[in-house]
């Protein structure tokens, strides 16, 4: 078991390395940092631009591999380089990491748990009204673009605030600017800001996972071993809980790792719409600025998140399924 997980971990480390190298090479080829300085008022002399680009290590007059080795050498020591505005990528990374994780973690954990529950519940109630309603709602959600959902949520929040005459729900930024107060006040303020973006992320997770979970649960409901459990004298509920749910979760662990990637992509929009200064927003703005090092940094983040969730999915899989542990 330990050996199995260690092997998976090693495998992920190799994948991570490959992903990071590729993303550096791709970003360097696709982005043109010179364009960022073109057409400035007052104009910047080509020599000055050249010098600036050399300093931050993205001067395309140097051979690509040279630049890559230079960057990789520093990255190996934990330094992700300079942004195109010559500030530290690491500092920016640190600032945005907490913001994104807070959003992603709460949203996905909540969404996954609720999605699994909704899926299992609807499977047990197959073709009843509640099943049909949840199915309808899920498909409606899955076919709604993120920004449309965000706008709808915002409209709902405005309506709520207006009717209750408060400004309870906040939907811009991650905290109220210039807020002072004790720890409790800050925490409450953050929570209020978290509400809408978290709901929007969670809703997508619920919609997606509930579909998968419903189908794996339906397979389990028709399985021979559930019938055996009933033939032993277990009531339907305990047969489902003890023999059905755990087996139905096994195939889900694979979906979890893939699903996380989709959620991360979705979160990019969510952050931008709700004015959160997280990784997703950084990604979009650094592409606009042709900022190679920042783009690579976001890619590193995405790769780590995806591979980490893959590893967690492996852990979960091994915990749920003895057949993996003993293989």
């Amino acid at each position: 078991m330990g050996a199995y997980l260690a092997k998976r971990l090693g495998y992920y480390a190799v994948l991570l390395l490959a992903a990071v190298c590729l993303s550096y090479l791709l970003a360097s080829l696709a982005l043109d940092p010179r364009a960022y300085f073109a057409g400035r008022q007052p104009p910047i002399s080509p020599a000055a631009v050249d010098h600036h680009l050399t300093v931050i290590g993205v001067n395309d007059h140097r051979p690509l591999l040279d630049r890559f080795w230079h960057w990789a050498g520093r990255a190996a020591h934990g330094d992700l380089g300079r942004t195109i505005d010559d500030t530290s990528v690491n500092a920016e990374f640190g600032r945005r990491l907490g913001v994104s994780l807070r959003l992603l973690l709460i949203g996905t954990l909540l969404g996954t748990a609720l999605g699994v529950l909704a899926g299992a519940w609807t499977a047990v109630r197959q073709y009843r009204l509640s099943d049909r309603l949840v199915t309808l709602a899920s498909f409606a959600l899955l076919s709604t673009p993120v920004f449309l959902l965000a706008v709808l949520l915002k409209t709902g929040a405005i309506w709520f605030n207006n009717t209750t005459g408060t400004d309870l729900i906040q939907f811009t930024g991650e905290q109220s600017p210039g807020l002072t107060g004790g720890f409790g006040t800050v925490l409450k303020d953050r929570a209020v800001h978290l509400l809408l973006p978290t709901i929007s992320i969670a809703l997508f997770a619920i919609a997606g996972y509930s579909r998968y979970q419903r189908s794996t649960m339906l397979d389990v409901l028709g399985s021979d071993y559930l019938r055996t459990a009933r033939a032993k004298g277990l009531r339907r509920r305990s047969a489902l809980l003890r023999h059905g749910l755990r087996t139905a979760l096994i195939p889900m662990s694979t979906y979890f790792s893939y699903g996380f990637l989709a959620l991360f992509t979705g979160a990019t929009f969510t952050e931008t719409i709700f004015g959160w200064h997280g990784m997703g927003e950084w990604f979009i703005s650094s592409i606009n600025k042709n900022d190679v090092n920042s783009v690579v940094a976001v890619n590193v983040f995405a790769a780590v998140v995806v591979l980490l969730s893959g590893f967690l999915a492996d852990l979960l899989h091994a915990a749920l399924d003895p057949r993996v542990r003993h293989a």
């Binding site: 021979d224 071993y225 559930l226 055996t228 459990a229 004298g233 755990r246 096994i250 749920l320």
Partner: peptide
Amino acid sequence: SRLRGNRIAMVFQDPLSAFTPVH
């Protein structure tokens, strides 16, 4: 349920799928 597995028990055909794989 009080009778099943207690006074009437069943042996199913396919023993691989008749046991829960995770217990």
